[in-house]
Amino acid sequence: MRADRTFEELVREAVDASVDGWDFSWFEGRATEERPPWGYARSMAERLGRASAALDIQTGGGEVLASAPALPPVTAATEGWPANVARATALLHPRGAVVVASPEDAPLPFGDAAFDLVTSRHPVRTYWHEVARVLRPGGTYFSQQVGPASAFEVVEYFLGPQPEEVRGARDPRRARAEAEAAGLEVVDLQEARLRMEFHDIGAVVHFLRKVIWMVPGFTVKRYEPRLRSLHERIRSEGPFVAHSTRFLVEARKPGVAAST
């Protein structure tokens, strides 16, 4: 809690903070989020340790991929945001991984059957046919994704009630259907609903600046009345509570037994 800080001080600090990459250490002491039970980074690292060629899609600043103790002999990553491309390159090149600048909605810039492992943490969207194309027979796609209506307490505070088709987007059942339509076999699908707490208004501002699709076009000026109201609510009632949703999906391309 930063009850002694003014609205202006908290917001200015959040606006001045960098939002590059997927490092969330700025939130320490200001916001918390319960972690999924499956331990994505650890499980991803185990699979990377057994792979010979791996691709990390929408790698962000490369932090999750770089957390693995060992990378395969051939490791590549894609990222569409220029600031993150530079950040990921600086982090991953010393590990022997190549980072390719590629828009998230473009075909993957690799040949067919190039990888025996494809990973992605929180992709904006999964292009299942492209994943299937670059996987070798027997290869694995392993991904943690944002689930339906994630952090919608935050979204709806600023935007109001959302239609059911928006709340129900990113349904794990849809992911299964799309994976199978692309010719992949879903071998694991897990879901979790996780508690989030924002302890000051600066944490809310930083979150919305970093996760830009939550409230499209967010600026402090545009939403200042709602932000001030939420600031007073947090001061009087305690943390603003929301709930994120996540799902883990693992799919394999039919063929010879996967080495991952």
Rank of each mutant, 00 (worst) to 15 (best):
Y157Q: 06
A182W: 06
V146F: 00
A90H: 09
A132T: 10
E180H: 10
P161D: 09
W128Q: 08
L189A: 01
A90W: 07
S150C: 08
L108K: 01
A177G: 09
P82V: 02
T119K: 03
R136H: 08
L135R: 03
A77V: 02
S120R: 09
V155H: 05
E156P: 10
A177E: 15
E104L: 15
D116A: 12
P103E: 10
A113E: 15
P163G: 09
R174I: 10
D105H: 14
L108T: 03
D105C: 02
P94L: 12
Q190T: 08
Q190F: 03
T140N: 01
A175M: 03
V166A: 12
E79P: 00
A83C: 06
G168P: 07
T78W: 07
A106H: 11
A86H: 05
T89A: 12
F142K: 00
P107K: 13
L184T: 08
V100E: 00
Q190C: 06
A151C: 14
A181W: 03
H129M: 11
R170D: 05
P123I: 04
R87K: 15
A182T: 06
H129E: 14
V166C: 03
V186W: 07
A86R: 12
R176A: 07
V166W: 05
E79F: 02
A77G: 06
Q162A: 14
V131P: 06
S143H: 05
R125K: 15
V98Y: 00
P163N: 06
N84S: 12
S120N: 12
D112E: 14
F158C: 11
W81Y: 14
R173V: 02
A76M: 11
V146Q: 11
A132Y: 02
A179L: 05
P94V: 11
G80I: 10
G168S: 14
N84K: 01
V186G: 04
A101I: 03
E156N: 13
Q144G: 04
E130Y: 05
G111N: 04
T140I: 11
P161G: 09
R136F: 08
P82L: 02
A101G: 10
W128N: 02
V124C: 12
A169E: 07
A149T: 01
